[in-house]
Amino acid sequence: MLVKFNLNGLEKEVNVKANEYLLDTLRSIGVKSVKKGCNASSCGVCTVLLDDKPVLSCSILTVRVAGHKVETVESIQEEAAKLSECFSKEGADQCGYCNAAFALMVHALRKENPNPSAEEIKEYLKGNLCRCTGYQSQQKAIRAYLGGEEK
């Protein structure tokens, strides 16, 4: 099936099977920043933005994004770079596999709630797993990035 959608501001046309998932489509066309983790809707590393909302690309059929806007971390590079600096300062990275998804989630959180409390950050990001850091340093980095004092 031919599917047309907007990817990071560019119109894309892809030929997919009825049961092909967006994660596989994106990676097959070279968007490797979107990672495959559990592939079972549980870890969050495949997160992308669909019409500005975070979704799990491992669980969205590509045919369903026809006519919609899909964004990956490439569309928020400047923001992701700043967040990365905060991660570095706090030692909040190790392997970096989950970073792109975290950056997209923080971007979405900021749009929904520009001044979140520590608890709200934690709640918003709870579906995104990181096997390396234990989350404390990430929380600090994200709070620093959002410019908030701990509430």
Binding site: S41, S42, G44, T47, L50, K53, P54, V55, L56, S59, I60, M105, A108, E123, Y124, L125, K126, G127, N128
Partner: peptide
Amino acid sequence: VSQIMGPAFRNV
């Protein structure tokens, strides 16, 4: 509902 997984799951 807010306790079900994360927002990216609940958006789907």
